[in-house]
């Protein structure tokens, strides 16, 4: 499992500007949140739609950051670029089991998605974690294989401690 944890400073002002009120669900964060002022131009990875459907089928709600119709970026590579997942503090404190379940579902989905393809596939996605206790955001940048995704649960737990 290859991942990097870094401080994520940008979102608070942006979230305030958007009047963002988090509840205890997951959110998708647009890739261009820091550069784009108009929310209608927010871009998400094209895999976002399928991950939202996948989780919805298991009654796990994931919402886009705004109500705008999402624009989706398709990339040229066969690597899998996942959505930027935002885990709110309330989700972690009130329903942390959902995080592990969701990561397992994503992992199983990808295993299925790449069936029939023997070349090793690189998985890339990011998770932003809110920690209200420490008043900070952290970003996990994951790049690796499918198996490593499940292990991210313990990484998230350590960050939220």
């Amino acid at each position: 499992m290859n991942y990097k944890i870094e401080k994520y400073l940008e979102p608070e002002n942006k979230l305030n500007l958007l009047n963002f009120n988090s509840n205890n669900s997951f959110y998708f964060i647009p890739e261009n949140i820091n550069d784009e002022t108009e929310s209608a131009k927010y871009i998400y990875s094209e895999s976002t739609t399928d991950i939202r459907k996948l989780l919805k089928a298991e009654n796990i709600t994931v919402e886009y950051l705004t109500k705008d119709k999402p624009l989706l970026r398709a990339r040229k590579s066969a690597d899998w670029f996942g959505p930027i997942l935002f885990i709110t503090y309330s989700l972690f404190t009130q329903n942390s089991a959902l995080i592990g379940v969701s990561l397992n579902l994503i992992s199983s989905y990808l295993y299925d998605h790449f069936k029939g393809n023997t070349e090793s596939k690189n998985i890339k996605f990011e998770i932003i974690i809110e920690n209200k206790k420490k008043k900070e955001y952290k970003k996990i940048k994951y790049e690796g294989n499918i198996q490593g995704i499940k292990e991210l649960e313990s990484v998230i737990n350590n960050i939220e401690k």
Partner: peptide, 10 residues
């Protein structure tokens, strides 16, 4: 050859 772009309507 591979293309990348912003999908707007599906």
């Amino acid at each position: 050859a591979s293309v990348g772009g912003i999908i707007k309507k599906t």
